[in-house]
Design a protein around this nucleic acid. Structure first.
Lengths: 235, 235
DNA sequence: TGTATTTTATTTGTCGACAAAAATTGCAGG
DNA sequence: CCTGCAATTTTTGTCGACAAATAAAATACA
């Protein structure tokens, strides 16, 4: 055996890092649907899984609840937040608007180093499309647009937008785990166009492109829904 | 003596209510600048002030940190979040856009009972203007627009908008506590116009009105800043 | 006197335990 | 067999205590 577990009863974990570990992992598991919507969350189970007290677990849960990723009834069980399919249009409205405004702001306020990051994300997205890896497409697409939003440098918008992208990741994964459609190559091309107009600092064109791009994505999602709604409607 | 403190060592406080009490009060004190930006927050002091353990205090602080009302350095002191005067334009951008979109959605999706609430808020705002109570104006104005946003029924937008209104409350209070300018009667009239176009379900007019209204408020704030900047510039 | 280093004090993160609330089970009576 | 109540188990909110990390103070040394 290696030296990693010889005389080691210390937690080997730095003070204050516990919450972050739990928070990050739970967050990923929720967004990846490893913990599907409605799953009960047991504090003591998590406590023994991470080998720490319930206190840091609880703090992580409070933060997740603050972001709307888990629902917590007082004195009652806490569970992974459900997806409100009945009001999806509010999600789409917000998503399209944030696509537009963040891309527009990126065209206005980006700095040279931002473009490199955006370019890198686009390359990753293109690779995912080539590999026809639907899950990777979802993740890299979100990262691409998040990078654009960061270049816009408005923390209020990036905050909301990242939350929307997270929620979208959950929604898409819900369908792409059974149907591995490949997102069209067109999205890759549109991303290229978006990079071009951002680099050219053309705010109007950026807005226009982002809008049509977002609306196409929304349409794509709605198509998936229409196709699946007659199968597993479990209201 | 009455029977309220005879044989009463019970906390007289319901289980689970502690966090909410602390959260609500701290939140109000932060927004009202009773706790000015940069104030240190001492957990144990709060604990003895509210006569409870540090645990619920901590949970309230985590939630406040999630909303950006306090900043918390790991293993270091936590303090009331500062106002980023250098990037106020990002705040204004977000505020104007949310004014527009929430008012537009209210015109599209409001129900009859929403109008009654909005009307009530507007009356309160008008009363505050008549009384020339600047602090009440700030609060009732925020409540008025928050009610409009609720009528728009998009939780993503209302969430961000309420946060922006909170931040605006802090910013305004910072100046109105020394300068009790009276916000012009024009705002009252514009509010009336907004109610009218919302009731008429005229989304375009609602958008237009909200935009000019918001931009006037921003202008008002910027005037205050220009006037005060040459006095207490403490960079 | 000023600076570096050790010592003390304060504060924060974590823990185990306990008590209240809800969920579950067991039981009695119809 | 079902229904309503009592007892038990499980789960959640709170507490006091302890230890790590940092800040402050004290001391040593140049």
């Amino acid at each position: 055996m290696s030296d990693s577990d010889t005389s080691n009863s210390m937690p080997e974990r730095k003070r204050g890092s516990g919450v972050k570990v739990v928070y990050d992992l739970l967050r990923d598991e929720i967004l990846d649907l490893v913990l599907p919507p409605g799953s009960p969350i047991d504090e003591v189970q998590l406590a023994e899984r991470f080998k720490m007290s319930r206190t840091p677990i609880r703090e992580a849960l409070v933060r997740l609840a603050g972001e709307g990723l888990i629902d917590t009834l007082p004195n009652r069980s806490t569970m992974v937040a459900n997806i409100d399919f009945l009001n999806l249009h509010t999600f789409f409205d917000a998503l399209v608007l944030m696509y537009r405004v963040t891309t527009r702001l990126a065209a206005q306020h980006h700095r040279p180093e931002d473009l490199e990051v955006i370019r890198a994300r686009q390359d990753e997205f293109a690779a995912a499309v080539r590999a026809q890896d639907a899950l990777a497409m979802i993740a890299t697409n979100a990262a691409f647009h998040s990078a654009i939003a960061e270049a816009g440098r408005n923390p209020y918008f990036t905050g909301l937008f990242n939350r929307l992208l997270d929620e979208g990741r959950r929604i898409l994964r819900l369908y792409y785990q059974s149907y591995d459609d490949r997102l069209p190559q067109r999205f890759v091309d549109e991303h290229e166009d978006m990079i071009a107009v951002i680099a050219a600092r053309d705010a109007e064109a950026a807005d226009r492109l982002a809008r049509t791009h977002a609306e196409q994505i929304v349409e794509q999602i709605q198509k998936l829904f229409a196709r699946n709604d007659r199968l597993d409607l479990v209201l």
